[in-house]
Design a protein around this nucleic acid. Sequence first.
DNA 1: CATTCTCGTTGGACCGTTCCAGCAGACATC
DNA 2: GATGTCTGCTGGAACGGTCCAACGAGAATG
Lengths: 358, 358
Amino acid sequence: MASTEPARGTDRAAHPTIRDVAARAGVSKSLVSLALQNAPRVAPETREAILAAAEEIGYRRNAAARALVARRTRTIGVFVLDLHNPMTADVLDAVQAEARRRDYRTLVVVGGEDAVAERAELEKLLEFRVEGIIALGHRLPHGVEEAVGEACPAVSIGSAPRGVAHLGSLSTDDVMGAGLAVDHLVALGHERIVHVDGGSSLVARDRRRGYRAAMKRHGLGALATVVPGSFADEGGYRGARAALALPSPPTALFVVNDLAAMGALAAVADAGLAVPQDVSVVGYDGTGLAGLRPIALTTVGQPLHELGTRAAAQLCGQLDGEPPGAAHTLLRPTLVVRRTTAPPVPARPVARRSRAAG
Amino acid sequence: MASTEPARGTDRAAHPTIRDVAARAGVSKSLVSLALQNAPRVAPETREAILAAAEEIGYRRNAAARALVARRTRTIGVFVLDLHNPMTADVLDAVQAEARRRDYRTLVVVGGEDAVAERAELEKLLEFRVEGIIALGHRLPHGVEEAVGEACPAVSIGSAPRGVAHLGSLSTDDVMGAGLAVDHLVALGHERIVHVDGGSSLVARDRRRGYRAAMKRHGLGALATVVPGSFADEGGYRGARAALALPSPPTALFVVNDLAAMGALAAVADAGLAVPQDVSVVGYDGTGLAGLRPIALTTVGQPLHELGTRAAAQLCGQLDGEPPGAAHTLLRPTLVVRRTTAPPVPARPVARRSRAAG
DNA sequence: CATTCTCGTTGGACCGTTCCAGCAGACATC
DNA sequence: GATGTCTGCTGGAACGGTCCAACGAGAATG
């Protein structure tokens, strides 16, 4: 509300420019620019004098000015759908490491609230002129279709949408992963296996599909039941509660991801049932969370680090003009058996092979 | 390796400028600029024509050019020490929400690897001309002292270092929080309470201090024992294992944070002991992780959302020239009792008041 | 009718860089 | 001694916006 004063949020004179350095070193601004970027034709002693002058007055390059003239930012944007999902941290670490290795910077934005905010975050990335985008999450951010294009390719990690130009993907085979989970439960002797799903996203659809296909494959198609959930632990709780209230309640739950499985675990406990004696629970993602001792969740593991590294490599490689590889890559999930799965309690001897029953 | 071709990572003509819009709308570039920023003196029909033209050719403002002339970016940098710590997500969410509310954008960078990379991340923030920095973690990033200054104030969340100019802080009273943990354990009847600490950071020091003071206050000064750990779960595991190997092993562990407490829980399990029957465990931070059903960790809660919101409010307020409040704010922690604490097993009747013993 | 005011619009300077063309001077070549 | 090449350096034109002074046209005022 300071009425007439010239509003200045940041103080002037605080940011010395290349000219200030030039004046102090007694050379032209062009030479300072050259020296700063290690150009070959600068006399060693001049270079040192310039570097010293820059150091003395606390000079720092201005990324905006530089990006303006270079018309490149060497920056990729990372859109994170859910910061709370523990898989995010693992993947993000890998993305950042690979980007840094290739001399790209990363700009992280977080979505997941509402569609408007998500579009705004994406817009911000574009205004900063990121050269590419990595979208991380079980669905694409709202508005990607308009955002990506020739000037700004994107790679999606997790979900694998086809048919959007300049949008590649890196994910694991979710249909297969869901199959692994069902196979494991069936091998233990379970039949009434309910799937707590993740709603309408592509990833949720694939895992649902994989579940249904595997149930059918085992002759349990008629028993296949899907209850609605979400990718957050609240959704897992809700879904599991609904599943346990079914007329013939399940002996095993296959939950859409590890985070939701946490909610499912809570719902089972609230129903006065024990895991894995009364109900087995399988998650998906293979996060560190699932591996925590008191949790010890059986889960379908994704190679999170590899996912991040390869996505960043694919995007940066493309930007650097490397010959493009496959736009869509599918990695293999693996089953990680821990302590939330066991044979169902009326341990009727099953003819099926029982190697996993220990 | 494309030798002579002009290397162009991003394609030309992909980014229309304000002049392209002007040409299409048949006006001058100045007017386009005016219309785009909702200036009052533009004729309504002209404005609409300009907006339509911009839409048609897919125009997007260039943040670099704009920042260059405005000499402001309305962007604050957020330095995150550890993405894997679940407290990060909660605080970050709040910071982003508040910053957005005040019309500031956030730039997130992740540190925690080595000192060199950390300095580089900070430098990147400065080159992007962020107007302020929020540092989030149990210690300050390497090189903040040189980074912050009049041109770039900072607020630290978590640790509260004094004496650095233009560096405010927002944290909870860690000495008091550690006291709450010890009080709770003593009230349950514990005496051999060992602290698994977090190393040399300020936060670790305060919690250690609070632990020692509280032990002394309860007449248990001679029993006070600190074993070295860290803020990650690996450190908690290591520390707890060392504690349990002591000649007279503890009946309770107070661990420096929730994440490390996960490691401690694992170490207790590996030693063949049960929580809370054989060993009680208390964490710190009050993260969602601790609240997960299978974990149910007793912990010292910090108002994570409030921490984030107030830090962002303080920084943005300062940038907008609001009258500065206190540079350093200390919030009160609260004890969250769950299921990892119980009276020690040889439940000898203690004269001390036992209201918490249920 | 001349003067002033307001409105809607415009050209141009400028922000801090990079990069290109050019320019002295030293040195080599014929 | 004229010519050419190389080295080390400089001035100026961009890059894509914002903002300021100025300007013509029409309305309001005397």
